[in-house]
Amino acid sequence: MPALIVWAGTAPAAAQEQTVPVTELLTAPARYDGAVITIEGELVGDYGYRASGIVWTQLNDDSYVRAPLVEGGALTGANTGVGLRIPAAEMNGLSPPGGYRIRGPIVRATGQWRFHDPNRQGETYLDVASLEVIESGKQLEEGPNGLAVILGAVLVLAAGATLAQRRYARMRA
C-alpha cells in the first residue's frame, strides 16, 4: 500500500491529508494527532451502531486484506488495526465486516486522527469524515479436512467401544 509520510509538523489540519499505513499509526500515533489523514484497509469485526448516530468499527491494514488465509495467503503475524468512528450516513451500502470466511469491504477512510482524545477519556481512533469503498466484501470458502474427520471418527468409536467393553466386563464381574 503506497504511503506518503513526509510531514509531522505544524501545518493546518486541512493541509495534512495523507495516506498513512496503520503500522505507522500504531508505531508513532502521537505524530499524527489532530492531522487529517487517509488510511486504507478492510473493515472487520462488527458495525456498532450507537444511538448517537455514530458507528464504531475496526480497519485492518495487513497482508490478510489482500491475501486471506483461507485462500492460501501467507501468515505474516498479528493483525494491525485501528478503531474507526464513522457517521452512520457514511455506512450506506457497505457489505458485512470481515470475519470468518468473510473478507470485509476494503475502504479508504479519511478523517482526523485522534490520539488519546480527551473527549473520549483517552481513546485513540480515526474520526472519519468520508468513507470510500475500494472493493466490496466477499464470501470465502473453507471445506472440511477429510482425513481429520475419518481419523477423529475412528478414534471416537474406538474410545466408545473400549469404555463399553470395560463397563460390560465390570458388570459381569
Binding site: 470468518y100 473453507e142 479436512n145 481429520a148 477423529g152 478414534l155 471416537v156 474406538a158 466408545g160 473400549t162
Partner: peptide, 21 residues
C-alpha cells in the same frame, strides 16, 4: 464451520481414545 468441525472431532477422538485406554 466444517474446517474447525474436522479438527474438533479429531481432538475429541484423541482425548477419548487416550482417556479410554
Amino acid at each position: 464451520e466444517w474446517g474447525p468441525f474436522s479438527s474438533f472431532l479429531l481432538m475429541i477422538g484423541v482425548f477419548g481414545a487416550l482417556g479410554a485406554t
